[in-house]
Design a protein around this nucleic acid. Sequence first.
DNA 1: GACCAGGCACATC
DNA 2: GATGTGCATGGT
Length: 213
Amino acid sequence: MGNKLVNNIYHVLFECFGPQYWWPGDSPWEICLGAVLTQNTNWGNVEKAIANLKTIDSLCPRKILEMKRESLEEALRPSGYFKLKSVRLSNVARWWLENVENDKLKKRPSNLDYWRDSILAVNGVGPETADSILLYSFGLPTFVIDAYTRRIMHRHFNTPENVSYAVLRDLFMDNLPHDAKLFNEYHALFVRLAKELCRKNICLPSCPFASHE
DNA sequence: GACCAGGCACATC
DNA sequence: GATGTGCATGGT
């Protein structure tokens, strides 16, 4: 599987669907917060939790950290795993204040590997969440692998079903120019394709409508 | 009522 | 390094 295929997939998807304008969110922090809350969770439920935080004017990292644990859990409840996510979101908010909204930032290197290691060290941030934050919140050129990407690549391009995150990420990063705009659009187009296939009843494995195939 | 959704940490082998 | 398990809500 090489350069050509990885490029061709992108061009076909872009011609079909056009730009996707990702990630949904009004600010870098809101994107970061959404990346944590959407872990193994439907985006619609995440939107409810974000709306709750906005209603009580507690979206920003400082307010998240100032909130009582129970209040934060209550706001996050619709997004599922709310006890777990209240801890994870607090960890990420602390990291954000220390590393992003801080003068120290100016002295820090701006390279991808530095920031990837930094955010991956936060408890509750794994590879997908890290790459989503780096790409969609910071605009750094890293490729996001999610369940949709895995399913599409397995079903339509024959990659092993349980291929590791790192191997699949390398497949894209080794065969594409490191361009944040390209990576942004590419991942968003995978999600769009998966949803279109489902909507048109051309189902991917584990699609809820798969039994009607 | 079952199954699923844009994962992750931790234990165990 | 691979595999299994708990975490929880809301839509279909």
